[in-house]
Amino acid sequence: MTSDARNPRARILGTGRSLPAAPESAAPSDAPPADSAPGDASAGNERRGAAPGETTSDLAARAARAALDAAGIGPRDLEMIILATSTGDAPMPATAVYVQQKLGAELIPSFDLSASLTGFLYGLSVANQFVTAGTMKHVLVIGADLLSHRLDPRDRASAALFGDGAGAVVVGPADGEGRGILSVSLRADGRKADVLQVPGGGSAEPLTPERLADRRHYLRVNQLELRQAAEERLAAQALAALVTAGLAPADLDWVIPHHADAELTALLAERLGCPRQRVLGAFDGGSPAGASAGSVAMALDEALRDGRIQPGQHVLLCALGGGLTWGSAVLRA
């Protein structure tokens, strides 16, 4: 899953992001207290949740329009839409077709991809393959989630970790100046599938009144195991992606992980041997800390638009989420 580091064949042409329209309402006052996650920098901050009637495809379409504008192309120039999400508008059809409809794109392949917080990187890898092979010229990749719809209002710790938002990129041919996608490295471990999951609502557990009463339709997180996995996997996978790209940690200018956890960020910086201030996250600016599949793309868009990421700089993207899935991508901006 790599291009020649000196001559990448695909690059990100434009980026965009979108937040929900309205601030999320506070948790019910009768909800039992829960401890915040260790080192969670976002605990206690106001989170932006979806307005009534707002859907995942609404967020995804807004982020997509911003990415298309940045790339200087229109919806009818697209040849594929990939939407990474765990909170689609409906179980069927794929939410990507609603995005296609809202954008006014042609009758192009449009599909969803489910890999939790790592979903955007999975989608980026698919787009990279199509563009690198010369099969397609413009592929839209979106990471979008409305996790506020999956959070148990009694679980304040999870509410502090996960939010709503969307990020999008347009992937197209590289320009021959060395800028582009240098490598993408992905992994999954199904033995840890229950660490982060929504157990009810699928073929294994169709929703019944009893399962609804047992709150099986809400997100369930083993925060200790999830954190341990992130500590063990993120840096190791990032180093592997760097090797594939023909780079060393010292070559990195920026690192964008999937979450805003201050302790995890510091650990990642230490293991990569880079200054803490070079590790960005979706906590910067107005982005929610854990917009799942949208987090990395949102932070990338923010850092490109405010000028922190400059042309020619090396950027590492990394994420870990349900599955468990994890991965990294290395870009030359």
Rank of each mutant, 00 (worst) to 15 (best):
G119V: 08
K192L: 14
D58T: 11
L182Y: 03
S42T: 12
E46I: 08
A115T: 04
Q101W: 08
S25P: 05
G246F: 05
L103G: 02
L78R: 00
I142G: 06
A60Y: 02
A213Y: 07
G190D: 01
A94R: 01
L147Y: 11
T325W: 05
N128Y: 00
E177G: 09
A157V: 06
D175Q: 06
P32Y: 09
L280W: 02
A127K: 01
G201Q: 02
V296Q: 07
R187H: 14
A230C: 14
P52E: 11
L268T: 08
A66T: 13
A71S: 09
S18I: 05
A297L: 04
R6N: 09
D40E: 14
G119P: 10
A64M: 07
V169L: 00
A230W: 08
R220I: 03
Y218H: 14
P52M: 06
G176I: 02
A43H: 13
L280P: 02
L124S: 05
A21P: 11
H138T: 01
L68Q: 02
M92F: 13
V315F: 02
P275N: 10
V97F: 03
E231Q: 14
G246A: 06
D152L: 10
R179E: 10
R215S: 10
G202L: 05
R278V: 08
L252S: 11
S42P: 06
S57I: 03
R227Y: 15
R179D: 03
S42A: 14
D284G: 12
P28G: 08
G200T: 05
S183M: 03
K102R: 15
A37M: 14
R216I: 05
Y218K: 12
A299G: 08
V296H: 09
V139E: 00
Q197Y: 10
S158F: 12
